[in-house]
Design a protein around this nucleic acid. Structure first.
Lengths: 175, 175, 175, 175
DNA sequence: AATGAATGAGTGTTCATTCAT
DNA sequence: AATGAATGAACACTCATTCAT
């Protein structure tokens, strides 16, 4: 791919991330293109339709999250709870939750659905481990932890020092 | 206003609450009207435009919340924390948080902005009281409590027995 | 249906017939609407999409042709050849041939596909009869007669006194 | 012109003939270019716009038809009817008729308009001659013969053994 | 006062044409 | 001179809003 096309593609992805995060998944393609400093036509050269763009962004974010999570998870010296907390801190933009709000029907995109499943499995495994190690409260199902984190932490604009993140992590800790 | 007009207005408000809660604030006016068993024309007779309808619903919900909150707050026998928990349980549909997601710019509607301010003040006052009574953790600013509850509790579809609600309330309690 | 809506629907159908006949099936919806003296929105209220409009027109034309053909065919006093000639004279606009050029894929619309099949059957039956009565040349397969008439006679703009029609009918007559 | 440029030009013309014949005159420029094994850019280097490409193809086809027709016409031993039949057999792709369907307005291109006129004149002359020799029916005006042949024979996909061609030629023969 | 039809601006997408590489 | 990316206008279709019935 030509250097300028590559650059423009990246501009588009960055713009899409910004615009969808800020305005929601209904933002117009034109707005994304203008934010990237390009025309719609250029956008459509890189992504055949709106869905493809959303899928790309979601896939990107999930892949990144998963890679980070697996690396963190591999460190045997850390408790599962610590790994979970680090993962939460890594959930900056457009993670777990967004994928589902962005795409009505995740199932349609194979790779994305697979990533979502893997990501869910990782979180569940960490939650289960943290419960066994006695750090995570036992009265919340491991699967439910994903939902809690999704809603509370993995929101556009959420920050590590967001009071809600602190509160939720404290609320999840075993007493 | 004629009795049937009054009835239709109520049908519309109920339908709008249901539809916007279920489908998001982008639901079409026609869908709202059909859900109410009326035509768009009738809808527009009662509300000059989409924004007016959204504002009305938001205003309604906030008024209700505020009335309930003030009544609960007036009971001197209850701790502020207990009042706060009861208020949270009352936030079923379309409360605090919704107003901001529904309307981009609350400031434009005077009555709504006033209600939002009063509601914020009530929550802040309760949070401050609960902190002084030692039930609410002290390291979260009273103003921030509103944000936390907004995001975590006052979501469409949220329920009192939602794990997130439990976790957040536990996370807010002083140790 | 309200009287004005009915009237507008007819205006649209007439305009579509005119525009598609003149400019081909690629004519823009906007052009059809303007020709009808309406806006696109009105057009889309009556027909959910371009295909539906094309199907309606084709169905209309084929139904008419078929009804006329069956009536003519029922007259036992007439030879099959005479019936065929009368049918040909009735093929004014948008008949047999058009349906296939208008819609890429006739099969998608059940009613239309059925009509096309019935129409083909009628023509084939008449051709076979005319051959047995010795009026239609025997070295052209009955099925092929349909193709010949489609191409030669059932064209937009074709007229009964068109030289091509005369020539083709003479060319089809047995010597 | 460089040898490779000349070669590319020919590739484009051949591809355009193939694509427009197969897919109709609405085929995209990109498709033509890809069929030629080139990029759109290269196509536009040779032809300033879509119309120019269509005109070139039409001109080519008409020139060829005319050259063939004149050669055939020069053979004094053949009857005019025989020449006419041979010409008809030569009308394979994109002839007379196509020019008019491809280009809305032939008049805009001087050379093409001239060729069309010459071609019409040749056909008319042959028709007149065939009438005088008693082979072509006399009740069809020589000018009309052009129209008949255009519509019936000079269609994309038409073949010499097409029933319609047989029928029309028989229909044109004097009895 | 209700109905539902008409308007017209807005959005997703395509494609002829231009232009940087 | 070829490539393939970018532009921007055009078209199909939707929906908030207006208006004739």
């Amino acid at each position: 791919m030509r250097a300028d096309a590559q650059r423009n593609r990246e501009l588009i992805v960055a713009a899409a991330l910004e615009v969808f995060t800020e305005c929601g998944a209904d933002a117009s393609m034109d707005r994304v293109a203008r934010t990237a400093g390009l025309s719609v036509g250029a956008l459509y050269r890189h992504f055949p339709d709106r869905r493809a763009l959303l899928e790309h962004i979601a896939t990107d974010a999930l892949s990144d999250l998963l890679a980070f999570g697996r690396a963190a998870s591999a460190e045997q010296s850390a408790t599962r709870w610590e790994v979970l907390v680090r993962l939460v801190a890594h959930c900056t933009v457009l993670p777990l939750a967004m994928t589902k709000s962005l795409l009505g029907d995740i199932g349609a995109h194979v790779r994305l659905a697979a990533l979502a499943a893997e990501s869910d499995a990782l979180f569940e495994e960490l939650a289960r481990g943290a419960q066994q190690e006695g750090d995570l409260r036992g009265d919340v199902a491991p699967r439910a932890v994903i939902g809690v984190l999704n809603t509370a932490v993995c929101r556009p604009g959420a920050r590590v020092d967001d009071p809600l993140v602190t509160v939720v992590l404290d609320g999840l800790k075993a007493r």
